[in-house]
Simulated assay, not measured.
Amino acid sequence: MEAWLQQMIHLMLETLSLPQVGLGAVFVIALISATLLPMGSEPVVLVLVVAKPELFWPAILVATAGNTIGGAITWWMGYGAERAYEAAVHHTPRDQRVLGWLRRFGAKTCLMSWLPIVGDPLCALAGWLRLPFWPCVAYMAVGKFLRYLLMTAIGTAIFE
């Protein structure tokens, strides 16, 4: 198993030229992966940190910034989708269980934006519901920072 992981890391290092491009690639991949595109940025952060351990904190912070900006873009996509929907249909959507939960907890639900599969749609729904933008972005940043910190720390511990 470890040989396979080492082979995958070597492949990613060569394919993405991570040691040369480094933090710029981490930022772009983290930003794109926070939109509704099905992509993960944690492996890229881990590979960069394994290749250059001195970039642990810069990689965490750059990935957090890129992923948070991507979450903010997704918030605006949800906001725009809701406005387009309202203009086309001329009525408000029914309160469903998830929308009620989001309304009740407000911007704090964006703390869960780090979750796989449901995290990015949560950001879009926050925009759809017109939850306050900056508090949503702040909660996104906290959740995403903790995810990158935990995932990268565990990953680097495995490769030590």
Rank of each mutant, 00 (worst) to 15 (best):
S17G: 11
L55G: 05
P43Q: 08
L36I: 09
P93W: 13
L61S: 01
L115K: 00
L131C: 12
M140S: 07
I117V: 15
K52I: 04
F159H: 07
R104V: 05
W4K: 08
G70K: 01
W134T: 10
V26C: 00
A3C: 07
L46V: 09
K144F: 03
P132E: 15
G22R: 03
L37P: 09
A63E: 09
G24L: 05
T15I: 06
V118S: 10
P93S: 11
I158E: 04
I60V: 15
A81H: 04
A157L: 12
E2F: 14
A88Y: 09
T64P: 03
L46C: 08
L18G: 01
R94Y: 11
I154C: 08
V98E: 00
W128K: 12
H90Q: 15
L23I: 12
M151A: 13
M151S: 13
G24Y: 00
F105V: 08
P58F: 00
A3I: 10
T74H: 06
A141D: 01
A124K: 06
T109F: 09
V137P: 03
Q6W: 02
A126C: 08
L115Q: 05
H90G: 14
W76Y: 13
I154H: 03
E42D: 13
G127E: 06
I117R: 01
A87R: 15
C136D: 13
A138W: 06
I60M: 00
L122R: 09
G24P: 01
C110E: 07
A124Y: 12
L99T: 12
R130F: 05
G66L: 00
S113L: 11
Q96N: 13
M77N: 04
L146T: 06
I117W: 07
L131E: 04
P135N: 06
F159C: 07
G100P: 03
H10T: 13
L13C: 05
L131F: 10
A157E: 09
V44I: 13
I117D: 12
I154F: 07
P58G: 01
G24V: 02
A25W: 02
T35I: 06
L111H: 05
L149S: 05
T152Y: 00
G24N: 02
T92Y: 13
V44Y: 01
A88G: 12
I69L: 12
L23S: 04
L125W: 04
M39Q: 11
E160W: 08
A157H: 07
A3N: 14
E160Y: 07
E54S: 09
I29K: 00
A87D: 06
W128H: 10
V98C: 09
G80P: 06
A51V: 01
P93H: 13
M151V: 15
S41D: 03
A124G: 08
I117L: 14
A138L: 14
T68P: 11
L31Q: 03
V26I: 14
W134L: 15
G24W: 02
T64Y: 04
A84I: 08
F133E: 02
T92K: 12
Q6P: 00
A84N: 07
L46K: 01
I73T: 11
G143I: 14
V62G: 00
W114Q: 07
L61W: 03
L61Y: 02
Y79I: 08
W75G: 02
E14H: 11
V89G: 07
A153L: 13
M140Q: 07
W57Q: 02
T74W: 05
